[in-house]
Design a protein around this nucleic acid. Structure first.
Lengths: 202, 202
DNA sequence: AGGTAGTTTAACTGCTTGGTTAAATTTATG
DNA sequence: CATAAATTTAACCAAGCAGTTAAACTACCT
């Protein structure tokens, strides 16, 4: 079947993802997706009936790949500081290889929170509970500075994801070449976690 | 002239901004802009020839409002920690009142870095030099943990801006109502700066 | 060899959208 | 009041786009 070479279906999905990420949902063209997949528009519609259905698939796929990764780490029994180190590293590695994904997700989630709501509420609920309790406990024991789990969660997410969203702003603002930027991102893999830990350690 | 009520031109610009922020450049419709401005399409084109010219204006306006604010603060002679407190507070206040702006800017800057490049390079260059030297000096004197100005700048930007971009993600992930979210953002106004300061203070 | 799924070609429909136009109408302004 | 500017109306054009269709071709399967 499709053991040897990537199936047409996969080719289309890859092409669709690429185009959607680059141009956004509204900006993407079915013709371009077909072209990039090396097929024609008729076949594209033969596989995925409409643009809407195709885009829904891509969105689900995108969220479904990135979300469980973080949640899985946050849900372990690992010690808090190590958990922070691991989640930063995991996330940063993944996003480095899919640098357009955050912008796409953030966009579509803002445009239509419904998708995301379903995706999370129905599956990934209370995967944060362990993390939440862990933080509250550490605060109560005086091991870390008082901070709400929500704020800490936001801070970690922010430090990891934003630089990819704001890449052009940061590059222009700081005068970094592509190589420079990549190097700074490499630094971040270790520095962000230590930054956070220094900020909360009592 | 246009002293009493807002001129038609302003009405259009406001409507255009609203629609562009909501739908994105590609998703925005000239008809909708006209409707929201309370005029008709003909008049819309009578004032601003094309969608492209109109959107260029909106982008420039958006960037031009938010960028100088941060730069002005970073360029003062203020002591480093106070500067961090001020820039966080200034930015957070502004963005709270224009919560769709960051998403729009981040989008368009990624889609077309050229705009932003011109806007910054031609005006706001080396407004970061003072901040840069300041950080390097503080590191050299051992007053703060070793950190590059670039990383520190990214961290502050991230912590301030990201929560607005990821609002739906955070809300769903943490199960926050709109009121909850707003309250958390209120906390951030003071907490983010202290978080950063604790992270770098030697 | 014949059938079936996958694929191409090429033309076409119907709708949306940006943009235009010309004439009519209203509003300000001197 | 008269003139010019602002605004509406309504129709229109051309281009782009999602989606359809039918016929032909290809490759593989049994």
């Amino acid at each position: 079947m499709d053991l040897q070479k990537r199936s047409t279906e996969e080719l289309i999905l890859e092409a669709a993802q690429a185009v959607f990420l680059e141009k956004g949902l509204a900006g993407a063209r079915m013709q371009e997706i077909a072209d990039r997949a090396g097929i024609n528009k008729a076949l594209l519609h033969y596989y995925f009936r409409s643009k809407e259905k195709l885009s829904a698939l891509i969105i689900e796929r995108a969220i479904g790949v990135i979300l469980p990764r973080v949640m899985a780490v946050l849900d372990t029994d690992m010690e808090l500081f190590d958990k922070i180190r691991l989640v930063v590293d995991t996330y940063l590695t993944f996003v480095s290889r899919n640098s357009f994904l955050p912008l796409f997700i953030v966009n579509e989630v803002n445009r239509n929170p419904h998708f995301f709501f379903r995706a999370v509420v129905e599956k990934e609920r209370n995967h944060l509970d362990k993390f939440r309790r862990q933080v509250e406990e550490a605060v109560a024991q005086g091991r870390i500075h008082p901070i709400s789990p929500a704020q800490l969660f936001m801070n970690v997410m922010s430090l990891v994801i934003f630089p990819f969203l704001g890449k052009p702003i940061i590059q222009v603002g700081l005068g970094l070449s592509d190589k420079d930027f990549k190097r700074e991102m490499e630094h971040r893999r270790t520095e962000v976690a230590e930054f956070v830990i220094r900020a909360i350690r009592a």
